[in-house]
Design a protein around this nucleic acid. Structure first.
Lengths: 208, 208
DNA sequence: CCGCTTTTTTACCATTTGGTAAAGACACGA
DNA sequence: TCGTGTCTTTACCAAATGGTAAAAAAGCGG
């Protein structure tokens, strides 16, 4: 029984892996800055160093590339939220989430912008995913935080809006980079300053 | 001397006013959801109830419409920040800014998304404006807040990142509406809850 | 009602868009 | 070295894109 299952999906060749990676990377650049409709296959092809028909050999169309990127992103993106441990120290857990989220915004800004673009457009391709996956996770984490509050371990506030505010403040440094760079030209101040500030902001909120 | 100055720009007729308004309103819908490149003149025309050539009778091209919208938006958008009074009560002033900004995000979400879209794209049309207008205002307000901190009137933190976090948390409710609606289906909880939460968040940060 | 300006429509146009068909180049095991 | 399956290119296409020219229609002051 080597690989003869109903769906005989053979392992992708080295070339396939390389080119699919190239395409997805180029597409991430284009989709994340111009949004779905503003992105063109020609630009993706140019950036990937492949011809347009060649790209359509690997993906069935523009939409499939976009969906692939979105799915891939959501997985890594939600991880830090999943990692929040209900048994851990509440303030530590939440601050650790803040810091992980900030790391991602700084290290993977394109992924962040891809998501923001999709939501700005009204989440036409993501909505089912938001309802099926994000919402349950969100509710669950909000419930965990609420329990912490009711147990008097952290100060009371609205858990849902707390999560949103963490998302918003960290995401800001990815999405609005073009603005932030103008307002705070020195990278040091931008990144380390952001971390220190956010830790202070949420520490104060959470400390009873 | 009725109107014979060097540039004899006659007053726009009623028709002109009405149609320019229609066009800008339709364009705001389209640009704010699809970004500059994703927006099409055809769609703007359809939404405005005018023909495409008719639109190009009022505006010289796609870009002029976009720029007009951006300029108009920036003016109203920066007002609340300008209104912060150095002589007023610091916490009151800052919280009032938070609340005004939140009002705008809730009442004028399209304008907010228009701006976010432009920044996501790297601010190609806005950067000069950011440098010439936003930056000086931003630095000035940061300086005001810093003075308040040094005078011991509010707790110390990074003023620049404070302003950014206010921007981020309030803007979130405009930009990410499609997500927020899924996560918090009841409008009441979304809007009033946001206000209460943000007031609490920034009160705690600022109280010495 | 007339004549003149403003506004709108019709008919285009070159370019770009997402996508396809089919031939050609390539890799690689037998 | 050959053949077979994988990959790439060339040559297209219909539709949509931003934009134009010019004629037709609508307003409107006199």
């Amino acid at each position: 029984m080597t690989d003869n299952d109903p769906a005989p999906k053979k392992a992708p060749s080295r070339i396939q892996q390389r080119n699919r990676t190239r395409i997805l990377d180029a597409a991430l650049n284009v989709f994340s800055t111009h949004g779905y409709r503003g992105a063109t296959l020609d630009q993706i092809a140019r950036e990937a160093g492949l011809s347009k028909p060649n790209i359509l050999y690997y993906f069935s169309g523009k939409e499939e590339i976009h969906v692939t990127l979105l799915n891939r992103m959501m997985e890594t993106w939600l991880d830090p939220l999943k990692d929040m441990d209900p048994e851990g120290d509440p303030i530590e857990e939440i601050l650790s989430y803040v810091n992980h989220k900030l790391d991602m915004a700084i290290e993977l800004p394109r992924e962040g912008r891809l998501f923001t673009n999709e939501i700005l457009q009204g989440a036409p391709r993501m909505e089912p995913y938001l309802i099926a996956d994000l919402k349950p996770l969100f509710d669950d984490r909000a419930a965990v935080i609420l329990r912490w509050m009711e147990d008097g371990k952290i100060a009371k506030s609205d858990p849902a809006h707390l999560i949103c505010s963490i998302w918003a403040t960290t995401q800001h440094y990815a999405d609005m980079a073009a603005q932030t760079v103008v307002l705070m030209p020195e990278q040091q101040k931008r990144e380390d300053g952001a971390r220190e500030f956010l830790n202070q902001l949420f520490s104060k909120l959470l400390t009873p």
